[in-house]
């Protein structure tokens, strides 16, 4: 089976403290996978490690067919990680998604502009294309970043808590976009913290708390027993304390 993302023996530590321990994960093409776990479980760290922002202690990460990262991965950041006062417009932010394709020194071509326009229209943000991004509502900001991820035309999409603080309408639009991406054979990996909506949004799920507690199709893996194990407040402590979990 061809996998979009393969993680082997990944450990990440900030100084002496292991944040992710011995992660093995295979994500097939054409899935929407949720990464779920309590606060401090290392969900965002896992994403950063795959994106190459955090240097892993041990292990390997392989993305679809080992293509160049710039074209293989797109990501939607957590809201806090972006400078919202930055002097730039909605259109400009979405165009940033094309920069990986445009290359050093060059300027955007006509096809780049067309793609940006199409993505903004898909997310009904075209009328706001000249707005300063700080002036948008939370839902609109999230749509802009989704549009930016779309124009990256990647194989794998990473989204960090995309549903946080968005309105119901944006949520519907986003779910639609996710489904159409999936239909195109793309892979979406979504960090998520609301257990109630897992069944509704995702077809597969990874339960993470420093280690992977379970990973697979939602109906197989997302059981009360597994959730309990993952969310036991000291689950990873228990592991180190030599209780076989």
């Amino acid at each position: 089976m061809e996998y979009a993302l393969v993680i082997e023996d990944l450990s990440v530590a900030y100084h002496k403290k292991p944040v992710l321990w011995d992660i093995d994960l295979n994500v097939p093409f054409g899935t929407i996978m949720g990464i779920v776990g309590p606060n401090g479980a290392g969900k965002s760290t896992l994403m950063k490690a795959v994106l190459g922002v955090v240097k892993p202690l041990t292990g390997r990460i392989r993305l679809a067919g080992d293509t160049h990262q710039a074209h293989a991965v797109a990501y939607v950041p957590q809201k806090e990680s972006v400078d919202w006062d930055f002097p730039t417009t909605v259109y400009d932010v979405v165009m940033m998604g094309r920069y990986g394709h445009i290359g050093w020194f060059k300027r955007p071509r006509k096809s780049d502009h067309e793609k940006v326009e199409a993505a903004l229209k898909t997310l009904s943000m075209w009328s706001l294309k000249d707005t300063q991004i700080g002036a948008l509502s939370g839902g609109q900001q999230q749509r802009v970043f989704l549009a930016r991820a779309l124009v990256q035309e990647a194989d794998v999409y990473f989204l960090d808590e995309p549903f946080q603080g968005v309105d119901a309408k944006t949520e519907r639009v986003m779910v639609e976009v996710f489904k159409s991406l999936k239909a195109q054979g793309k892979t979406l990996i979504i960090v998520h913290h609301d257990l109630n909506t897992v069944r509704q949004y995702f077809d597969s799920v990874t339960l993470l708390n420093v280690r992977v507690f379970a990973s697979g199709a939602v109906e197989d893996v997302f059981t009360d027993e597994n959730i309990m194990k993952t969310y036991q407040s000291d689950a990873h402590q228990a592991f180190w304390r030599d209780e076989r979990v």
């Binding site: 922002v53 991965v73 797109a74 990501y75 950041p77 990680s81 730039t88 920069y99 990986g100």
Partner: peptide
């Protein structure tokens, strides 16, 4: 002039700069 768009991305969203290579 050469690195205008690279610095724009770096200032605005550092992680994106990583992702774009």
């Amino acid at each position: 002039g050469f690195f205008y768009k690279e610095y724009k991305v770096l200032s605005f969203d550092r992680t994106l700069a990583h992702v774009l290579g």
